[in-house]
Simulated assay, not measured.
Amino acid sequence: MKQLLLFLICNLTFLLTAQGNSAEIPPAVMFKQLSTTEGLSNNSIRSIYRDKRGFLWVGTESGLNKYDGYSFQQYYQNNSDLPDDAISEIFEGPDDNVWIRTSSGYSIYNYKTGKFDNDYKPILDGLQIPSKNILRMGKTSKNEFWAYDYSKLYIRSMDNSSIKAYPLAVEKISSLYIGVQFIYIMYSNGTLYSISKQTSEVKEIAIPAIYRPLLENHEPHIYIDQNESLWVYTFQNSLLLHKNSFTQ
């Protein structure tokens, strides 16, 4: 009986140890390279977006690509109605079509026609968003469509059709992020502001003076993670700043 009990204990110990070790072993991760050899229009990628239909859209310095998991379909100015080949941003608009930002303006890929349409003004007018002098547009994860011009930011909730406008400073905006409670705006001169979506109160978020020269005219961008922590980074130098609710 003692030998049987010892045998069971040894086997149980072995199983628990094996399970513990297996949990520590990371799963194998498979990578597949996708480049011009596989049909990508250009290896310098500016934007990646997966739409609701499962297609992966890849915007590059030269051409837009739609990937179905097997092959790329390439779109250029000379084989479509895209206003330019340099693609900087891709998202799904209020019409559930794919909106593409190029260096020469926006274009909308219509899934029903399979063609691009560069006239987005009727859609904005239908959303009660002034379509004149629009500089940037986008859509949040909370199903909010936004656009801004030289003086105001317009946010329209696609769930309840409400729309609200927030005043902006006239300085050039380098990056904008719309969170759940606040809007964060980074200007090219390195200043950073937050706007309360509820009260429209504007506050400057102080950045240490030592970092300001590294931000000014260096394309400063912002990102808000799932913990509502703020990240500031630049494209042209190795600067990364982080701020959470407790420390700077």
Rank of each mutant, 00 (worst) to 15 (best):
residue 143 N to S: 10
residue 127 L to S: 04
residue 209 A to I: 05
residue 116 F to G: 00
residue 156 R to V: 07
residue 154 Y to A: 06
residue 214 L to I: 03
residue 210 I to V: 14
residue 185 I to K: 03
residue 200 S to Q: 08
residue 113 T to L: 05
residue 143 N to R: 06
residue 212 R to Q: 14
residue 173 I to G: 09
residue 102 T to E: 01
residue 129 I to M: 00
residue 221 H to C: 13
residue 159 D to V: 07
residue 103 S to F: 09
residue 100 I to T: 06
residue 190 G to F: 02
residue 193 Y to Q: 14
residue 168 L to Y: 01
residue 159 D to Q: 10
residue 111 Y to D: 09
residue 123 I to T: 12
residue 128 Q to I: 08
residue 194 S to N: 13
residue 207 I to M: 09
residue 187 Y to M: 03
residue 110 N to L: 14
residue 102 T to C: 06
residue 170 V to I: 13
residue 102 T to H: 05
residue 135 L to W: 07
residue 102 T to N: 06
residue 139 K to N: 12
residue 115 K to Y: 10
residue 141 S to Y: 02
residue 163 I to V: 15
residue 184 Y to I: 09
residue 183 I to H: 08
residue 202 V to T: 15
residue 203 K to H: 11
residue 181 Q to A: 11
residue 185 I to R: 01
residue 115 K to G: 04
residue 118 N to Q: 13
residue 192 L to Q: 05
residue 144 E to D: 10
residue 212 R to K: 15
residue 176 L to P: 02
residue 180 V to D: 13
residue 102 T to Y: 03
residue 146 W to F: 14
residue 102 T to R: 05
residue 144 E to H: 09
residue 111 Y to F: 13
residue 225 D to Q: 02
residue 155 I to A: 03
residue 130 P to F: 00
residue 195 I to M: 06
residue 201 E to T: 13
residue 133 N to L: 10
residue 174 S to R: 05
residue 102 T to P: 07
residue 109 Y to D: 04
residue 121 K to G: 06
residue 150 Y to H: 11
residue 174 S to H: 05
residue 230 L to K: 08
residue 137 M to Y: 05
residue 195 I to R: 03
residue 134 I to S: 03
residue 120 Y to R: 09
residue 141 S to H: 12
residue 125 D to L: 10
residue 179 G to I: 05
residue 174 S to M: 04
residue 236 Q to H: 13
residue 231 W to H: 13
residue 181 Q to I: 06
residue 198 Q to K: 14
residue 157 S to H: 03
residue 152 K to S: 11
residue 143 N to H: 03
residue 208 P to V: 00
residue 159 D to Y: 08
residue 233 Y to E: 07
residue 207 I to H: 11
residue 116 F to Q: 02
residue 162 S to N: 10
residue 108 I to Y: 05
residue 174 S to D: 07
residue 141 S to V: 13
residue 180 V to L: 14
residue 219 E to R: 11
residue 226 Q to K: 12
residue 163 I to D: 08
residue 138 G to H: 08
residue 121 K to Y: 11
residue 224 I to F: 06
residue 164 K to E: 14
residue 110 N to Q: 15
residue 207 I to S: 11
residue 209 A to F: 08
residue 110 N to V: 13
residue 112 K to Q: 11
residue 236 Q to C: 06
residue 133 N to V: 08
residue 163 I to G: 12
residue 231 W to C: 04
residue 99 W to K: 02
residue 198 Q to N: 13
residue 150 Y to F: 12
residue 101 R to D: 11
residue 150 Y to V: 01
residue 166 Y to D: 00
residue 220 P to V: 04
residue 211 Y to Q: 02
residue 165 A to Y: 02
residue 115 K to C: 01
residue 203 K to R: 12
residue 180 V to C: 10
residue 210 I to W: 08
residue 204 E to W: 04
residue 166 Y to S: 02
residue 190 G to I: 00
residue 161 S to I: 00
residue 191 T to C: 05
residue 211 Y to H: 13
residue 193 Y to E: 15
residue 205 I to A: 00
residue 117 D to W: 00
residue 198 Q to R: 12
residue 128 Q to S: 14
residue 222 I to E: 11
residue 169 A to R: 14
residue 148 Y to V: 06
residue 99 W to Y: 11
residue 208 P to N: 08
residue 161 S to P: 00
residue 108 I to E: 12
residue 112 K to Y: 07
residue 148 Y to T: 04
residue 157 S to L: 03
residue 100 I to P: 00
residue 236 Q to W: 01
residue 164 K to A: 12
residue 146 W to L: 06
residue 218 H to Q: 14
residue 160 N to D: 15
residue 205 I to S: 05
